[in-house]
Design a binder for these strands. Structure first.
Length: 370
DNA sequence: AACACAAACAACCGCCACTAG
DNA sequence: ACTAGTGGCGGTTGTTTGTGT
């Protein structure tokens, strides 16, 4: 006795494609009166010329009365990101934490919105780690190369206030900023990777280096800080940091869009949150990921110093291999250092400017207690 | 107005796990 | 223990809608 197919497609009468209002009504009426029971028999009894599977899907994803329609809120968006960083593409499990939302809806939202935004932020949506893939970095360096080749000295400054060079200046700024961001992400990775044996760290068992996922998990209301936790830099805006708002994506984009509004000193600050930060404040998933307080170990400033001396024989070259499996960043660190050196050699204006930034970041980082 | 392209969304398909016989 | 039937899940595709040229 062979296994019968899910639907009796041999008859050729099973309808596919979009549902009509009439079909929806039939399905709703039947389920209201009898419940769904067996989906296969339901399709027949309800007079629907549809596969039972199709009926179930239509009901679960569209007709169910408790379905919440409309745009996802920022809270929901944050929850999805948090859960995805822990659960991966387990859409149905993620959906159980979002009442009224279906796995299909969440999956679509992820693929059409969140995924793109994470990529734009330089975060790998699959691993939730900073993107350090070769192609991504090459794109950035190519951007820089294009702007440099234009031969406009202003391109290598933060001179976007000049309307004549605004667009090109923005591109240069963004590329430089993101390259530096990636640089810091790698340094963060190296710093944490060097802190003892990560194989015993429960976050590593989850594939979640603490510095990485806490960026999401620790901050219920401030994704900007989350980005900063990934090593992103944000300009002082008229003397104050931009990361005080509670908005999420809008703020990030706003911060990027406002990069031309750098204060007169052209100085940056790093907004770095301790990875033992606000775990208890996370309203979403307090129990899913253990907090991983990082005590002692290498300071961020030491990493910065190492960065300035890329040939240093310290951590990057010697201690790293123990966690290489968890931190693919090592594969590309030489590339990013080369990029930095290229940047520094780009021209004198740029060189002094970037050195200023590095000095500043070094100073700021030395004040941070991990 | 017409067309091309991209984004968003709904639905399908194949596989897997579970359960009853 | 084995197998057919079923539901559920995740990946993918197809369709619709929106936007720019």
């Amino acid at each position: 006795m062979g296994r019968s197919p899910c639907c009796d497609e041999s008859s050729g009468n099973v309808k596919k494609g979009p549902w009509t209002e009439e079909e929806d009504e039939k399905l709703i009426d039947y389920i209201k009166k009898h419940g769904h029971g067996s989906w296969r028999t339901l399709a027949k009894r309800a007079g629907l010329n549809r596969c039972g599977k199709s009926c179930r899907l239509r009901w679960a994803n569209y007709l169910r009365p408790d379905i919440k329609r409309g745009k996802f809120t920022q809270d929901e968006e944050r929850i999805i990101i948090n859960l995805h960083s822990v659960l991966g593409n387990k859409w149905s499990k993620i959906a159980t934490h979002l009442p009224g939302r279906t796995d299909n809806e969440i999956k679509n939202f992820w693929n059409t919105h969140i995924r793109k935004k994470l990529l734009q932020m330089g975060i790998d949506p699959e691993t939730h780690k900073p993107r350090t893939d070769f192609r991504h970095l090459m794109n950035l360096t190519q951007l820089l190369g294009i702007s440099s080749n234009m031969g406009n000295p202003m391109m290598n400054t933060w001179g976007a206030n000049n309307p004549n060079i605004g667009l090109q200046g923005d591109v240069t700024q963004l590329a430089k900023l993101q390259l530096l961001q990636n640089l810091l992400q790698i340094m963060n990775s190296n710093t944490f990777a060097n802190m003892g044996n990560n194989n015993n760290n429960p976050n590593y068992l989850l594939g979640n280096p603490s510095f990485n996922n806490n960026a999401y998990l620790n901050n219920g209301s401030n994704t900007l800080q989350a980005v900063a936790n990934h090593g992103a830099l944000f300009p002082h805006q008229h003397g104050t940091t931009t990361s005080t708002g509670s908005e999420s994506w809008g703020n990030i984009e706003g911060a990027v869009n406002n990069m031309q509004e750098i204060d007169c000193c052209n100085k940056f600050s790093i907004n770095v949150i301790s990875s033992e930060g606000n775990q208890e404040e996370n309203p979403v998933l307090p129990a899913l990921v253990a907090s991983s307080p990082v005590t002692g170990g290498t300071s961020c400033s030491s990493s910065l110093n190492q960065m300035e001396n890329k040939n240093s024989s310290s951590c990057c070259n010697t201690s790293a291999p123990t966690s290489t499996a968890h931190s693919p960043n090592y594969n590309y660190s030489n590339t990013i250092f080369d990029d930095l050196e290229m940047l520094l050699q780009d021209d004198e204006t740029s060189s002094s400017y970037w050195k200023d930034i590095l000095d500043l970041t070094s100073t700021s980082a030395s004040k941070i207690s991990w």
